[in-house]
Amino acid sequence: MRHEQVHTDPDPYAPYLLSQAIRAGGFLFVSGQAAVGDDGGIVGRGDFDAQAQQAFSNLERALQAGGSSLGRVVKVTVFLTSMAYVDKMVELRRKWFSAPYPAETMVEVSALYSPDAMIEIEAIALADDAASLRYA
């Protein structure tokens, strides 16, 4: 099975030798998207709402770069530094996804890649076989 690396521009993952996403077998596997801004820094330190907005925006950008979209997401895993944000996640699901909502696993973790990061979202989506990869 052939697989292709997906990039965004800027690509904050490149220095770490990670892929934003990989397209393979009609699916797009998106790496965890956090509240990373174009400058590579965390957006909204200490502000879950701002971080969630940025993480979902980054997820959408990676999906589009890989020839998919939020409407084609079939599975998400959400990593939170506190389950106190569960109610907000329901609101975010309603804002960013539509029925049928993707399958989801939500996990509380003691820390993410940065002590300032509060949320990270990874996804699996259906990819358009005819789409060419592009930089978003």
Rank of each mutant, 00 (worst) to 15 (best):
E104N: 04
V76P: 00
D39V: 08
I121F: 07
A62F: 08
Q5K: 12
F27I: 02
V73F: 03
Y16I: 08
V36L: 09
Q64C: 10
R93F: 12
A84F: 07
S57F: 10
L133M: 06
G25S: 13
T105I: 12
P102M: 01
S82K: 08
E120R: 12
G66H: 03
S132Q: 14
F27T: 08
Y16C: 05
G66L: 06
E104H: 12
L92E: 10
R2W: 03
P12D: 07
R2Y: 07
G66P: 01
I121D: 08
I42H: 04
G40L: 11
L80D: 06
G46K: 06
G41Y: 10
A50R: 15
P100F: 01
D47H: 13
P15D: 12
A127N: 11
Q51M: 08
R23M: 09
D49N: 11
A111N: 10
F97S: 00
A130L: 11
V90Q: 13
R134K: 15
S19T: 07
S31E: 12
S69W: 05
R72I: 06
R72Q: 15
G46A: 05
A136H: 07
G40Q: 10
D116P: 01
Q51A: 04
Q5W: 03
P15M: 09
I124F: 13
Q20G: 03
A136C: 02
L28R: 04
V30S: 00
S132R: 12
V6A: 02
S69P: 00
Q51D: 08
L18A: 05
S68L: 03
A14M: 07
A55N: 07
Y101V: 00
F56R: 08
I42Q: 04
S98P: 00
G44F: 12
L126S: 06
A130K: 15
Y16M: 13
S19Y: 12
Q53I: 14
M83E: 13
L92F: 06
R2D: 10
V43N: 06
Q51N: 09
L17K: 10
L28V: 06
E108R: 12
S57D: 15
